[in-house]
Amino acid sequence: MAVATRQDIAMVDQIFAPENAIFSAALLLMLLVGAMQVTGLVGDLDAADLDADGDVGLADAVLAWAGIGRVPLLMWLVIFLALFGGLGLGLQQLTTALTGSPGDNFLMVPITAVAALPPTGVAARLVGRIFPSLETTAIDRDELVGLYAEISIGTARAGNPARARVVDAHGQAHQIMVEPDTDDQKFETGETVLLVKREGEIFKAYSRGDFYLPRLD
């Protein structure tokens, strides 16, 4: 059995020291989100699910600079958390070496968060180029009207929407809430429906009609 050395113990103590707690937590959260994506416990939240109404302005420029929209939002979050946590631990270690004591988190956390954005943007663009299918394209959610969606969780009834998955013209998947446009319909999990209109965050739909037909498998 391997015995932990003093150096190993000192490293663990440093990682979980109060001044490093936020950065260590970011790394742990990164691992958790990454594991949840791999196991499929969470769906892909992508930047395209944010409404793209209005003209491109300062906020859009900042989001593009940070790499948001290049990859699904959860993947971007994993990249950011990894860089934020790693940079934070490194900066605290450098500050301790130069001054003899770690920096105050009220100063170090915002500095590290800002410092992590440029490399996050670069990393997101690289990942988007290596895996083009991961790149997202911001669209107006009204553009989803007229497309087919598949009910992914639950049974949708009038006034009781269910979650559905729809793929836009760019091949990007969106998770939306859908309910029948008429009171006499209901949609079951796995059923394909046609999105006919949008009311706020809810999409109204008609059944494609073939879900209950007998299948010759």
Rank of each mutant, 00 (worst) to 15 (best):
D51F: 02
H170D: 04
A113V: 05
R70D: 15
I111Q: 06
G34D: 10
T155W: 02
V122R: 08
G103E: 13
A47D: 12
T95R: 08
S133I: 09
P119Y: 04
R70H: 14
L87M: 09
A113Q: 02
S152D: 14
T96G: 00
W65E: 13
L126T: 04
A52R: 10
F106C: 04
V166P: 08
W76E: 03
L58P: 02
S133D: 11
R165L: 14
W65A: 14
A97R: 07
S152N: 12
M75V: 14
G67Y: 02
L117C: 01
G57H: 08
P132H: 05
G86L: 05
R163A: 14
V145W: 03
I130A: 04
V42L: 13
L147K: 03
G128V: 01
L91A: 06
G154N: 01
R125I: 08
T155N: 02
A156Y: 00
G103C: 11
A173N: 08
L89K: 07
R125A: 07
V114H: 01
H170M: 03
D142A: 13
L147N: 04
V167I: 12
A61L: 11
A82Y: 09
D142F: 10
G103N: 10
A61V: 09
G159A: 07
D55M: 11
M30I: 03
G43D: 12
V122N: 04
L50K: 04
G40W: 08
L41A: 11
D104K: 13
V78A: 05
L28F: 06
V56C: 06
S152W: 10
G121H: 00
G154S: 04
W65V: 10
T112K: 03
A59V: 12
D168S: 00
P110M: 04
V122T: 05
Q92W: 05
Y148R: 15
L107G: 12
L134H: 11
A158W: 14
A149G: 01
N105G: 03
L144V: 09
Q172E: 06
A64C: 03
I130L: 12
L117S: 00
G121C: 00
L27S: 01
Q93R: 13
A35I: 11
A61Q: 08
F131A: 13
D168A: 01
V109F: 10
R129I: 07
D140Y: 09
G100I: 13
M75P: 00
I139Y: 07
P161Q: 12
P132C: 06
S152R: 14
G40Q: 13
Q92I: 08
T136Q: 15
T95Q: 11
G69V: 11
W65F: 15
T137P: 03
G40V: 12
F131P: 05
A97D: 11
I68T: 10
L81G: 04
T155G: 02
L87W: 03
G100T: 07
G57W: 10
A61C: 00
V114C: 05
R157F: 05
E150W: 03
L94N: 01
G54L: 11
A169Q: 13
L58K: 02
T39V: 15
A149V: 06
V78D: 10
R163M: 12
L50G: 01
A47E: 12
F84M: 13
R70A: 15
S152K: 10
V42F: 06
A97N: 07
A66W: 10
R70I: 10
A47L: 14
L87N: 04
R70V: 09
G85F: 00
S101A: 14
